[in-house]
């Protein structure tokens, strides 16, 4: 892992990996959404609204995966002081927050025809909303600590680790508490879903995951380039001040 600690080596890999992830991701997600929208049959009880699953589930997974990425990067930063870990955490924040918001909005749009309500304050929905607020808080803290401490990211790293407590709460909320939300349809090695829905769902999840990875790499490249430009301009200003 420390082999990737070198920003130059990271950039060499990211330059070809980022467009590859985005390209394959966009193609896979487009095909999967087309399949889900026009080829998959309507569900017996939910009718046409079941098609929302092909967006809602990948968005929910990536909302949680984004925070798991922040937590893993925070741990790496605190323990090994990996120079790219803080940048990776910042790279995960915006796509994670966007997918969390998409999950909440599509869930609400699904809830209205399925449950007869846009929103209920049950465990799953509330913990997902908490995740969105955690993202907002993390982004504000990260920006504030960068501005005040010259890129020192210890406080956001601790916040990233503490906030990870919410991930198992989201996952188990439908098991621990009575919920309007259905229990998980897909568990390790098992699926309660018919293949007509499962395959496009897996394809959409793969496609959106690759898009997520591509966006994280693009964000990391942007943050790294910003830091390098700042450092150069600062050095230039100091050398000019010395003369």
């Amino acid at each position: 892992m420390h082999g990737f600690a070198n920003p130059a080596r990271f950039l060499r890999i990211a330059r070809w990996l980022m467009p590859l992830c985005m390209g394959i991701g966009v193609v896979a997600a487009t095909l999967a959404l087309y399949w889900g929208l026009f080829r998959a049959p309507p569900e017996r009880l939910q009718g046409e609204t079941v098609r929302i699953v092909f967006l809602h589930v990948p968005a929910a997974w990536l909302g949680m995966a984004g925070w798991m990425g922040i937590a893993a990067a925070s741990f790496t930063e605190l323990v090994w002081r990996h120079p790219l870990a803080g940048i990776a955490a910042r790279g995960c924040a915006v796509p994670g927050a966007v997918f969390t918001a998409v999950c909440l909005i599509t869930g609400s749009l699904w809830g209205r025809p399925a449950w007869g309500t846009w929103w209920v304050w049950d465990g799953r929905l509330t913990s997902m909303l908490v995740l969105l607020f955690l993202y907002f808080g993390w982004m504000a803290l990260s920006q504030a600590s960068e501005a005040s401490a010259g890129g020192h990211t210890r406080a956001p790293a601790i916040f990233g680790l503490v906030g990870a407590v919410n991930i198992p709460i989201i996952h188990y909320s439908v098991i621990w508490w009575n919920s309007q939300h259905q229990p998980p349809s897909i568990t390790m090695g098992k699926s309660a879903m018919d293949g007509a829905f499962l395959w496009p769902l897996l394809a959409a999840t793969l496609g959106f995951t690759l898009i997520f990875a591509g966006v994280v790499l693009a964000r990391m490249r942007a943050i790294l380039a910003d830091q390098q430009a700042e450092a150069r301009l600062r050095r230039k200003a100091m050398s000019e001040a010395a003369f």
Partner: peptide
């Protein structure tokens, strides 16, 4: 139902 499906896809 399609109104909700199309709105979800447009936003997502």
């Amino acid at each position: 139902a399609w109104t909700f499906v199309i709105a979800s896809y447009a936003i997502g």
